[in-house]
Design a protein around this nucleic acid. Structure first.
Lengths: 220, 220
DNA sequence: AATCATTTGTTTACATTTTAACAATGCAAA
DNA sequence: TTTGCATTGTTAAAATGTAAACAAATGATT
């Protein structure tokens, strides 16, 4: 249906659209206007219409978008036809927090395995997710056909581990370590807590915040 | 020195430059070329030179950039003159993980307080950080002059809590909840774990990954 | 029936970010 | 000394992402 890759930002918003739309559906709404959907995410109606145009969803004039249909379409675009299995590599504090956060997945992404090198964790089951020895990574990933990895090992092990992950067949990695990676055969998404905190620190310095507010205002 | 706001992406990279440069300094390096710094972050040398131009750092031809000076300059730009105090609002799994992650801060950002509504946590000290009752937010933030908040409460409390945070004097918020916020008097940075995971899922679907790889190749 | 108001879909313009191009500089080697 | 080369700093172009503008459609109102 869609022959081209969608822009990264559009994909991100589609994920958010689906989430808020599901809530609207539960509240008994069946249609929604672009400007109402926009308000839910604090973006502009134009952006909503443009995103939906890109995925080929068409609303009805004066009635808005059919929420159930839109949710279904977004699913067809974002989700894999079957399911995609996810592994957490590194069960430290952050890995464990993410494990708890993700275990109640109602979508097509199934958290399937965790890996660590701590003997006290290996062999245990956390929230229904088994923790394997890091050494078994390739074996388990191949057997379970895991395609997505969440990387939460210590920074100094991140590069090596990321290569072992892609070598095992993982196609997408979210890197939560501060190490900066480069993968050849997988999609990489990096998120660096410290960087993000330092960015907020910069923009919330009083002088900068004033400049920032003026900038925002001048755009409206 | 710099009269204008820096681009957001530049600020993010400055944070990363500083981190890798500190490591190089520890390894005994005193100067670095733009292309070597670029390699450390897997970006282009042009981008490095452009970023450094924006902050007014000037290297010496055939010698590169003075690492110690550059680290110092980045500090002057990113860090506040004094220190900036940080609070974690919501000490669930994620909040606690971040608390552990941030407690060993060697920079100008000081994690000062945590807030929760769980009686079992209120009054306790975690890694040296006291956990207060959510109800004391305004009081503590004002007294301690906390300016940055990390929001990790349950999604349904995020909007209300964010307003209480800005009302108390917080100037910058990192929102880790899936709720989408809109703040008028503070800088807001949102990071949504699920969205980021679904984005990776989309781009690592085999068909899309092929398109993506071709796209990358065609750009080189 | 004619006009108006509303809302979609699409094109065009604007802003931000990245990448490329290249002049300027100055060390090294012939 | 002079040529060549490596490296910086800056300007220009390209790519990406966001917002505006507006035609088209259709129901509501007079």
């Amino acid at each position: 249906m869609i022959a081209e890759l969608l822009p990264e930002r559009t994909v991100e918003r589609l994920s958010k659209y689906r989430r808020v739309l599901s809530r609207e559906l539960e509240n008994g709404m069946d249609h929604i206007y672009s400007h109402d959907l926009a308000k839910l995410l604090h973006i502009t109606p134009v952006q909503v219409r443009r995103d939906l145009m890109l995925i080929g969803h068409t609303g009805t004039l004066r009635k808005g978008y059919d929420i159930a249909k839109l949710i279904k379409l977004i699913g067809e675009i974002i989700d894999c036809s079957g399911i995609q299995k996810v592994a957490i590599v590194g069960l430290g504090q952050l890995g464990m927090a993410l494990l708890n956060y993700l275990q109640n997945n109602k979508n097509k992404l199934h958290l399937t395995a965790a890996f660590d090198n701590n003997p006290e964790k290996i062999g245990h089951i956390f929230q229904g997710i088994p923790c394997y020895d890091e050494q078994q990574l390739k074996e388990v990933v191949e057997k379970e056909k895991i395609t997505i990895g969440i990387l939460t090992v210590p920074a100094n092990k991140a590069v090596e581990m990321s290569h072992r992950m892609t070598d095992s067949g993982i196609l997408g990695i979210i890197n939560y370590t501060p190490a900066s990676l480069k993968l050849d055969n997988a999609f990489l998404e990096e998120y660096d807590v410290i960087t993000s905190l330092e960015k907020v620190a910069y923009f919330s310095k009083p002088f900068n915040l004033d400049l920032y507010k003026k900038l925002i205002q001048s755009q409206q």
